[in-house]
Every structure is written in structure tokens, then in C-alpha cells.
């Protein structure tokens, strides 16, 4: 009896759910990476972050489906395009509001969210579009895993390591970390803060572009696709501690596992409810994020 109950819970499907959670975590971690950078450095919330991803997905779709450009050529072009978008967003919207109260910045990027959604609706229509690339499936016995997800997982890991190396090894990366701690005195180091912000925004955009390249393999593109990812990406960044990359990474996997295992043991809906409840509880226990030092 005991053994049977054990097998009922710890079957192969549980393992599959755990691994699928990890893979979903990869997708979420990738999304959180760029947002976290912006959050941590510029201290500005890009409410419209997921919409940048959406534009990137459209770019991929049109290049691959309409113009027949190969996936591997389209990807760097998309990353570049969204990087430019990120820089433009900073230059046109954020920079003039840097000294304004945070709520104004929030509202402004919220406005950009609607602008991008409406732009996509007008320019691309409300149709759901699908890249039509179907990657093979990896099978281990009864367990099967999505290649597309493995790819995003690997990309998230590589992206994370690359960002980490950039942030710690280069002068510009160090300046990006420094500027989040003391904006005013950066000029005394000979640092042009405007330039660093622009670089950071472009980098954040590039990461959104990278996420777009990988998400487009798994999801349909439509003007409102950001709604599926935007909120959860924010929660992850907040849970991990704003600007804390490793915290964000861990938070993404925690969230994904809660969604995946919660969904397996109860209703799928409950998986999400559990994840949000977990978020709220953690906000009380560790309001500054998972890895924040206690003060």
C-alpha cells in the first residue's frame, strides 16, 4: 500500500514534469535577464519589455516566412533590431524622464506598451502567426522533451554567463554596475552616464531580441503575446531582487517548478495561483528579493 502510494506520486511523469519545469524556467530566465539589467541599472521599469519581445518575434516571423531569410541569419538581425529599439526607447522616452518621479516613467513605458500593441495590430493585423519551424523532439523512454525549450534553456544559460562576464570583466560592464549605485559621481571617473545608459538599454533590448528569437519557435506571434509573458517576467525580477541576475535566474526556475509541479498535482490553474501566492509570501519574508543581504 505504502509502496503503491509512493509509485503513484513518484512516477516517470513526475520526473517529466520536473524537467519540463526546468525547461520552462529557461524560457522565463531568458526573459527576465534583459529586464533585470534595465531594472537594476537605470532603475526604470520597462513595463513594455514583453512588447519589445513581441516586435522581435514579428521581425523573425517576417524575415523567415516572408522573405525566406534563414533562421540563423534572421536571429542576429532581430537581436540588432530590438537592441536599436531598446536604445531608442531610452533616448526618446526614458532619458527625458530620468529625474521625474518613478510613477511618470512607469506611466510612460506603460504608454509605449499600448503604442507597440496598437502598432502591431495596425501593421501586422490581429492574426496569429506561426513561424512554421517544427524542431524534432528528444525522447528518453516514456519522457519527451522539446528541442525548442532545450535551446532556450541553453541560450538562457549562455546569455547569463555572457552577461556575467561582460558585467565583471569589462570596463563598460563594471561601469554599468557602478552607475546603479551612484549615478551622480560617475562623471568624476570620466564616464559619460548618458552613453552608459544607452549601451545598457541597447543590451537590454538585445536580450529581449534573443528571447524573441527563441520564443518564436514555441509560440504564435500576435500583438498581445506580451500579455502572456510580461506580468510573470516582472514577478520573477522582483522576486529575484531587482538587478540581481543570479536571484532572477533562481526565481525563474522556482516559479517554473511551482507552475509545473503545482499543475501536475492539482489543476493547471492552481499551479499559477500557487506561484503567485509564493510570490506574495516571499515579498513579506524577503522584500528585497531572494538573495538580498539582510540588513
Amino acid at each position: 500500500m505504502g509502496m503503491q502510494a509512493f509509485l503513484d506520486i513518484f512516477d516517470i511523469y513526475l520526473l517529466e514534469a520536473v524537467i519540463n519545469g526546468i525547461l520552462l524556467g529557461g524560457v522565463l530566465a531568458l526573459l527576465a535577464l534583459g529586464l533585470n539589467l534595465i531594472f537594476g541599472v537605470i532603475d526604470v521599469t520597462w513595463i513594455c519589455y514583453a512588447e519589445l519581445v513581441m516586435i522581435g518575434m514579428y521581425a523573425m516571423y517576417f524575415m523567415v516566412q516572408y522573405y525566406g531569410v534563414s533562421y540563423f541569419v534572421s536571429a542576429p538581425l532581430t537581436i540588432l533590431l530590438v537592441a536599436v529599439l531598446g536604445a531608442a526607447l531610452h533616448y526618446l522616452v526614458i532619458a527625458p524622464l530620468l529625474t521625474a518621479p518613478p510613477i511618470n516613467q512607469l506611466l510612460a513605458t506603460g504608454g509605449v506598451l499600448f503604442v507597440l500593441q496598437s502598432f502591431a495590430t495596425v501593421a501586422f493585423g490581429i492574426d496569429f502567426r506561426n513561424l512554421g519551424i517544427r524542431l524534432p523532439v528528444l525522447a528518453f523512454g516514456d519522457m519527451n522533451f522539446s528541442y525548442a525549450r532545450l535551446l532556450s534553456f541553453v541560450a538562457a544559460l549562455v546569455g547569463m554567463v555572457a552577461v556575467y562576464l561582460f558585467m565583471t570583466r569589462t570596463f563598460t560592464g563594471t561601469a554599468i554596475r557602478a552607475i546603479s549605485q551612484d549615478r551622480q559621481i560617475m562623471a568624476l571617473m570620466g564616464v559619460d552616464t548618458k552613453r552608459i545608459y544607452l549601451i545598457t538599454s541597447a543590451l537590454g533590448g538585445a536580450l529581449a531580441g534573443l528571447a524573441a528569437c527563441l520564443l518564436v519557435l514555441q509560440y504564435d506571434v500576435h500583438p498581445f503575446v506580451g500579455l502572456s509573458f510580461g506580468p510573470i517576467t516582472f514577478l520573477i525580477c522582483v522576486l529575484g531582487g531587482l538587478g540581481n541576475f543570479i536571484g532572477g535566474f533562481i526565481a525563474a526556475f522556482l516559479f517554473a517548478e511551482i507552475i509545473s509541479l503545482g499543475g501536475l498535482f492539482s489543476d493547471l490553474e492552481w499551479g499559477y495561483v500557487l506561484a503567485f501566492a509564493f510570490f506574495i509570501v516571499m515579498m513579506f519574508i524577503r522584500p528585497a528579493g531572494l538573495l538580498a543581504r539582510r540588513r
Binding site: F171, T174, R177, A178, D182, I185, L188, M189, G190
Partner: peptide, 30 residues
């Protein structure tokens, strides 16, 4: 700064959450 003036601000204004190495690195940003 590139003209050769370096300013040690009041209250030091280090980057508290960067290492000493990284703080020094910022001094050589130019």
C-alpha cells in the same frame, strides 16, 4: 577628468557593492 583633474568627493562616494578592484577599475575608465 581627461585633462588630469581627479576629484575625491566628500564622503568618499565609493560604489559600496563593488569590490575594491572594481572601484579602482572605474577610476581607470577613461
Amino acid at each position: 577628468v581627461s585633462l588630469g583633474i581627479a576629484h575625491v568627493p566628500e564622503n568618499r562616494r565609493l560604489f559600496p557593492q563593488l569590490t575594491v578592484d572594481d572601484n579602482l577599475k572605474m577610476g581607470a575608465f577613461m
